[in-house]
Amino acid sequence: MTAPLVMPEVITGLSILLLFVAMGDTFGLFQERGVMTIWIAHVTFCVAFVTVVISSRLGELDKSLEEAAMDLGANRVKVFFLITLPIIAPALASGWLLAFTLSLDDLVISSFVSGPSSTTLPMKVFSSVRMGVSPKINALATLLIAIVSVAAFIGWWLMAREEKQRQRDMQLALQQGG
């Protein structure tokens, strides 16, 4: 499951395109390469990254919580939805964010699997950067950096607020306990 993590993109892109072409030849699938083939290819190379993020969180999971829920009569499905899923929710969110960024940013794999009718933003940026300096790209860069800075600042602020709240709660609990 971890090989896609390090596999050079040119290899992944070329071979998955050859799969699509072969499937088109034999089964008549994916005759039109476009959004669908880009989706499949992006899911394939993002899965490994998301797996790493979520499995590391699952590894830290306190098993006794699940066992407690089972002792209290919950079945496995219920335990998963009521206990496991809420605990790993932050990892799911960061896994999703990672996959989102990787997919949004990908040039090489998209170039291989996209048809003539579909272009992604990185493909546009790449072709205009290859041509040389262009004010459009500078404008795009400014926009992107502004958006990411604002989002990062909000994220950082929320995290800091939560941490403070947690510490306050802990102190409160300690005082009440003592």
């Binding site: 040039l107 990185p122 940026v125 790449f126 950067v129 860069a141 950096i145 990411v148 990062a152 950082w156």
Partner: peptide, 19 residues
């Protein structure tokens, strides 16, 4: 977060900046 923050902006844009 500061280490990974740049990866959230486009990779191509960062290469363009280096150019």
């Amino acid at each position: 977060m500061l280490v990974v923050l740049p990866s959230w902006t486009s990779f191509l844009i960062r290469i363009y900046a280096w150019i």
